[in-house]
Amino acid sequence: MIWALVGGPLLLSAAFMLAYSVGLTGLLAHGLSFAAWATVLDDRVTWISLGFSCWVGAASLGISMLGALAVLALRPAPVARSMLTPWSLPIAVPPMVAGLSAVLWLGNAGALARAAYALGWIRRPADFPSPIYSTSGLGIIVTQAALVLPFLIVLFDRLSRVHRLGALDEAARTLGASPSLAWWRVRVPLLLRSAAPTLGIYFLALSGAFEIPLLVGASYPTMLSVRVVQLSGRFDLSTRPQAYALALLYALGVAVSSAVARRLRTSTPRTERI
């Protein structure tokens, strides 16, 4: 019963995607064929999208992690307890609003560009080095990093308290470690190790983002999720089997990596878990 409720929709959609991608169902079904899979696996764009997604996920996470560590280093006071818990990541600020704000602030005609003009730094909108629509994904990365930063601050702050990192830090210093040595050799490694499972989930979510890339990303290269929707063909149905093949590949990758992450987490000692 509970399995049907929890797993049913996932299984159903996976089964449909599989059947569609091998030509067993759908408007264009011509019997069993692996052509769509072959096309997807053979397509350079698939691998470019994969690489781009990973790059964006890793860079967004990396920047916000550095930011969170910096904030914690400057401001050791506990962060107020509030609804802002790390788990709220997907749902605290709508990605749509974050994307729009990025355009309004960082775009070529955005608030910062106008400020730069007022200061006499640029003369035309095109002179402003806007990260929006950049092919490097910088706009997506900056927006996502800003969105995730508060959650990482709260997460790191909470982990520091749960694992009493302050006391460990003090212990290291009574053993002769300088404050900076204690920070880099004790606090940061312990923090990152205990946050690793959550950071892994953040990485997956950031690489799979959809709305922000849609609003601030370039038309090429695209993130995997955007690529899947493009292929699923609002106008052209012929690429739909490829969309399902790609979506299944992606789902498989995520399912396996999250299973591995969970296994790793359960094998770490209990006290290390959050």
Partner: peptide, 16 residues
């Protein structure tokens, strides 16, 4: 899984 997957993929899967 649905969260790690990104809802888009779930949506594409459910669409048909």
């Amino acid at each position: 899984l649905p969260f790690a997957l990104s809802p888009v993929v779930l949506g594409v899967g459910l669409e048909y």
